[in-house]
């Protein structure tokens, strides 16, 4: 089979039905480029988790197909290759921490790959440096905070050296500070060339980071496009800053209403105020 090296993941007309009969995904089509940052959003139970679990062959399509770098996830001989290419970080920090110390947990993946001891050591140390947890490496899980455990989970995935990392609501159990730290780490990974798929309920945390936003509803894709297209086309569920700008515009201020960053909004508002001042002076 031929495939384009720039396409990381190709999802073609994917449908999924759980064994108990609930149809959770229906006709999902997405193609994700190498190095892209894709955010997946949508209300509880719309099928985000179900969708991303197809990406490293934890779930198999009921209909349609999913391929990773041209490898079909239904091809049993490619499963380990696919799981090495697409790493996954889950929501609950507790239940994905399998080691009795931090470094043992990070080593879990490379150990499963059967790598020699010195290579495991190298990868573990590199991954721990990257998430800035080196000084905690012999700590037991009960002495780590939720945020540290979640960064440990990222390190555990990094140690397998994946091309693509999926984050399934990884910040939902964390305090704002830890959340920001995780987001910074993810942004760094994206800048270093990794493909990022980020599932979240918080629109404001990914608008500044994502290249593309996928919004789901009842197992279907409802919207797909850039953050600006998202704001232009979606009425509800926008960040507070955007709502503010929309209100200002309604009142006749000449501001763009598709901004979501505080700095951009600030500049827009300042500009509009200057304009108003100038008009007042001209009137006099």
């Amino acid at each position: 089979m031929r495939f384009d090296h720039n396409i990381m993941i190709h999802i073609n007309n994917l449908s999924y039905r759980y064994p108990d009969g609930t149809l959770t995904l229906e006709g999902v089509d997405i193609s994700i480029d190498r190095g892209e940052f894709v955010a997946i959003m949508g209300p509880n139970g719309c099928g985000k988790t179900t969708l991303v679990r197809h990406l490293n062959a934890l779930l198999m399509p009921t209909a349609g197909s999913v391929s990773v770098f041209g490898m079909d996830t239904k091809d049993m001989s490619k499963v380990w290759n696919i799981r090495q290419t697409v790493g996954m970080v889950f929501q609950n920090p507790q239940t994905q921490f399998v080691g009795t110390t931090l470094e043992e947990d990070v080593a879990f993946g490379p150990e499963n790959l059967g790598l020699p001891q010195n290579e495991i050591r190298k990868r573990v140390d590199r991954a721990l440096l990257e998430v800035r947890l080196m000084e905690y490496k012999t700590h037991a899980p009960k002495t780590l905070s939720g945020g540290q455990m979640q960064r440990a989970a990222i390190a555990g995935v990094l140690a397998m050296e994946p091309e693509c990392i999926v984050f399934d609501e990884v910040t939902s159990m964390l305090d704002p500070e830890s959340r920001q730290m995780i987001l910074d780490t993810i942004q760094q990974l994206h800048q270093s060339g990794k493909t990022i798929i980020y599932v979240t309920q918080r629109i404001e945390e990914i608008l500044p980071l994502a290249d593309r936003i996928v919004s789901m509803q009842d197992g279907r894709i409802e919207f797909m496009g850039t953050p600006h297209e998202y704001l232009a086309s979606v009425g509800s569920h926008v960040p507070a800053i955007t709502s503010l700008m929309r209100k200002l515009k309604e009142k006749g201020f000449d501001v763009r209403d598709d901004v979501f960053a505080v700095d951009d909004a600030f500049l827009e508002i300042i500009k509009a105020c200057r304009m108003v001042e100038k008009e007042n002076i001209d009137d006099e």
Binding site: L58, L113, G114
Partner: peptide
């Protein structure tokens, strides 16, 4: 699920130590 997604196969594996 977390173990499976990190390639745990229950077969031969090596060790950090």
């Amino acid at each position: 699920i977390a173990m499976e997604s990190r390639c745990y196969q229950g077969k031969y594996r090596t060790s950090l130590f």
